[in-house]
Design a protein around this nucleic acid. Sequence first.
DNA 1: CAGTTTATGGTACGACTGTTTCACTAACCG
DNA 2: CGGTTAGTGAAACAGTCGTACCATAAACTG
Lengths: 186, 186
Amino acid sequence: MARPTDPARRERVLARAADHVLAHGLAGLSLRPLAAALDTSPRMLLYDFGSKQELVSAILVEARRRGAARVAGELAPETAGPEERLRALWAWISAPERVPYVRLFFEVHADAVAHPENYPDLATLVTDWFGTLGATFRDVTEGPGDTVTPTVVMAFVRGLLLDLAVTGDRDRADRAVDRFAGLLRA
Amino acid sequence: MARPTDPARRERVLARAADHVLAHGLAGLSLRPLAAALDTSPRMLLYDFGSKQELVSAILVEARRRGAARVAGELAPETAGPEERLRALWAWISAPERVPYVRLFFEVHADAVAHPENYPDLATLVTDWFGTLGATFRDVTEGPGDTVTPTVVMAFVRGLLLDLAVTGDRDRADRAVDRFAGLLRA
DNA sequence: CAGTTTATGGTACGACTGTTTCACTAACCG
DNA sequence: CGGTTAGTGAAACAGTCGTACCATAAACTG
């Protein structure tokens, strides 16, 4: 034996690569500029990740991991009613700090819709928000196996997020949340 | 003077190019394969459109033109209530024939969110559905200047479209429309 | 016919892509 | 020390990209 491997180095590079993708998007990603921005070389990226495709996968997993880590802790005080929880969800997901994640979310999903063969397990990625959201909106729900309520809420939130991301009209978006919250209460 | 120009040829190529993009997406588009699929040459594509960027713009305009031409005629029988019109809107936009347009819509918007500088007038593209939809949902509206109602409806529809496109779960999507229609009525 | 303009083919340029190969250094074990 | 393995730099490979240049054919006017 000799010179033990250093797995932490790969993780450091991965973290900075995820930062870069969250800041600049996935579309134009290529190894040489990415390596330059990360103070490394395309040689090392392939040494650590095998191929560009595997690097991208690792970046997406990392981005998803970061998002999931936060949604668990910061969301859903169980006490309030569904209307307040919708507002909390919207406030959290539409906050400026979340913009990079939202951008990446839409980028990946748009690409997945166009080329599903590259994303074998993406359908589950959409539906597994329902685990947390089904719990969050349990009392508006009709039975424990109800997937329709989270579907409705998430469809509205995602659609409104896209609207906000494109138009930047936060005022109109916030008022739309008010209106939708009113519909939920009635 | 000599040999008069033939503007119809450019339109023929554009129509077939739009077909190709609607079928295969914008992401991996490049001139040589596109030209091959269209029985022409990259040389001629640039001769007709000036640059790839201008070609893409023309294709997007053409795709949008086709979609707008249909939505005017096929939608919104003014007689029915808002619930029926929502169902009609959903049935129309989620029909299998619309899948290519929906795919392209999400692809363009995702790219626009990541790189807004390339789409100077995209915000209007999102909001001008409100002209037609504001008319469609006029009676659920609070006054003629109300943009919130169409925002809510379109957010729900777009988000649910993305869900359907990714998961393919039409059953759950249709039931979500039922639920949302119930909320609108109440 | 000559003259003029549109349309087209072929080709090459420079830049960029992901990946591979070769060489080399750095760090560890016995 | 020698031996072994991890890490790394530089360069090259084979390919694609958008585009520009040069020639030439095709269709028209006078």
